[in-house]
Simulated assay, not measured.
Amino acid sequence: MKPAATTPLFAGPFALATLSEPASPAFPALVLPQGSALDLRAVFAEPTLTIRSLLESWAAALPRLQALAEDGDQAWQTLEGLRVHPPVEPRQVFQSGANYRQHVIDLHVAHRAPDDALSPEEARAEAAALMDQRAANDLPYVFLGLPSSITGPFDDVTLPYSVEKPDWELELAAVISRPAYRVTIEEAADHIAGYTIANDLTDRATVFRRDMPQIGTDWLASKNAPGFTPLGPWIVPAGSLPNPDDLQVTLKLNGDVMQDESTKDMIFSVARMVSYASQYARLLPGDVVLTGSPAGNGMHWGRLLRDGDLMEGSITGLGTQRTRCVAESS
């Protein structure tokens, strides 16, 4: 039977997760907001079922999952004692840069050249004008990340000894349900199964190629260390979040609030981001589209990640991830 209700873990009647018992393989699970889980391999009679394969038949699976969430006779178990893995293993990770107005303004000021003649106030005004122009006339900035950078929502994050300026970037992530290629903004929502939380860690020291400025940004070096993208804990179906463009994104560092902004501050909406990425690449079931990070990163506060730091990232309706930083010895 389902356990008694407690404080809900997420919005809506159910979510998806990838879980495991100690020393056992991970399994795809249906999770209820009060904290019970159901192994979907037995229910679907598919021993090799994964969340990604479930998403590949999302239209057929969704009504079945909705019915299971109401079925008290299933073999529900408590989440206690289970490890929570990244909810899905994507084949592709689409990342977004410069998609929150205040964040971009902060970075514009923080990354100014030493000989920039503008005052901080003038630099902020300049950046604000650029953001207004960009929202009206420009396109999203999307690049690719590596699936190997993904780690679980409660796993330790190793800070490589070679990383000089590790920073946090909490983000809303859309999870793709069916292939999307050259879809319109209006069609994009039909290709999103649900949403989860991502923390897109970045080494600010290697974002720009100082040896060849003409090349611009170096996302391989700055974002793709193993474990630099904590993902999860849950995939909450899109139907449980009717307005992804109005969710509060909050990151606490050792209990102190560092990021606390609504997705309303995004320059480009979730649907526009997915549509844009699909103009150049074929998005596949289980792929994740990160939608950018709001203001309040470490560069803004002058305080970057250190050994022992605890990051707690939450987004309205999606739950909370908690990851501790562990410094790698050289």
Rank of each mutant, 00 (worst) to 15 (best):
S278C: 13
G302Q: 09
A295C: 08
G292H: 02
L290I: 13
R306F: 03
N297P: 01
M299Q: 13
S314Y: 07
D307G: 04
M273Y: 00
L283K: 09
L305S: 09
R282S: 14
D265Y: 12
G319D: 04
T316S: 15
T291V: 05
A295N: 08
L305Y: 06
A281P: 00
M299E: 12
Q279C: 11
A295P: 03
T320M: 14
V270C: 09
G317I: 02
G292Y: 00
V274S: 04
S275E: 08
S293F: 04
V270K: 02
M311Y: 01
G296P: 04
G319R: 04
I267E: 03
G292L: 01
G308Q: 11
P294G: 04
R272E: 14
D287M: 12
D265L: 12
P294N: 07
G302D: 04
R303Q: 14
G313R: 01
V270A: 10
M299F: 07
G292D: 02
P294V: 03
Q321F: 05
V274R: 04
M311K: 01
K264I: 03
M311G: 00
P294L: 07
M311Q: 09
M266S: 01
Y280K: 14
R303M: 11
G317D: 10
G296Y: 00
N297A: 14
I315E: 00
V288F: 06
K264F: 05
R303D: 13
G317K: 08
M273E: 10
S314W: 07
M299K: 14
G317W: 06
M299A: 11
G319Y: 02
R282D: 06
M299N: 12
R303C: 05
Y276V: 03
Y280P: 00
L305K: 11
L310G: 08
D287F: 07
M266Q: 12
M299R: 13
L310P: 07
P285R: 08
D307Y: 10
V289G: 01
G308T: 06
D265V: 00
Q321P: 08
G292F: 00
R272N: 09
G286F: 05
P294Q: 08
L318N: 04
Q279W: 12
L284D: 14
S278R: 09
D287V: 09
V274W: 01
G313Y: 00
V288T: 12
V270R: 00
L304V: 10
G286Y: 05
D309P: 10
L318K: 04
